[in-house]
Simulated assay, not measured.
Amino acid sequence: MTHVVSESCIRCKYTDCVDVCPVDCFREGPNMLVIDPDECIDCAVCIPECPVNAIYAEEDLPANQIAFIKLNAELSLADGWKSITKRKPALPDAEEWKDVTDKIGELVR
């Protein structure tokens, strides 16, 4: 099993999680992070670090977020989605978006 970044990360992109990841499995896109499932060692240290509760163990992912398993795998290999290993500031309007749901249409690939 692996961990998955869910929809809550879209338009927020808090990066607290990358500081604690022992294997550097996070990839950064324009307005979201994803986890490379081939790199994740299922340690779970990233879960409590996310201020918007966007990270789940695959088996704990809410039913309405299951598509993010495939999306994380796909985007972790996409051009332009590079490894991120150091914390950066969240997106400027992250606070406005942190509690918004149904944000998949906001995802920038």
Rank of each mutant, 00 (worst) to 15 (best):
Thr2Ser: 11
His3Thr: 11
Val4Thr: 12
Val5Asn: 01
Val5Arg: 03
Ser8Met: 15
Arg11Val: 00
Cys12Glu: 00
Cys12Ala: 05
Cys12Met: 02
Lys13His: 10
Lys13Glu: 13
Asp16Lys: 02
Val18Gly: 11
Val20Leu: 13
Cys21Ser: 06
Cys21Trp: 10
Pro22Gly: 14
Asp24Cys: 01
Arg27Asp: 12
Glu28Thr: 09
Gly29Trp: 04
Gly29Phe: 05
Pro30Tyr: 11
Asn31Lys: 02
Ile35Trp: 03
Ile35Lys: 01
Pro37Ile: 02
Pro37Asn: 06
Pro37Cys: 05
Glu39Tyr: 07
Asp42Arg: 08
Cys46Asn: 10
Pro51Gln: 12
Pro51Thr: 08
Pro51Glu: 15
Asn53Cys: 08
Asn53Ile: 08
Glu58Val: 04
Glu58Ser: 08
Glu58His: 04
Glu59Met: 05
Asp60Val: 00
Pro62Leu: 07
Pro62Thr: 07
Asn64Leu: 05
Asn64Ile: 03
Gln65Gly: 01
Ala67Leu: 06
Ala67Val: 04
Ile69Trp: 00
Ile69Gly: 05
Lys70Gln: 14
Asn72Leu: 10
Asn72His: 12
Ala73Tyr: 12
Glu74Ala: 11
Asp79Arg: 13
Asp79Asn: 15
Gly80Lys: 14
Lys82His: 15
Ser83Ile: 15
Ile84Glu: 14
Ile84Val: 15
Thr85Pro: 10
Arg87Asp: 09
Lys88Asp: 06
Pro89Tyr: 07
Ala90Leu: 08
Ala90Tyr: 08
Trp97Ala: 02
Lys98Glu: 01
Ile104Thr: 04
Ile104Gly: 02
Gly105Asp: 13
Gly105Leu: 14
Gly105His: 11
Gly105Val: 08
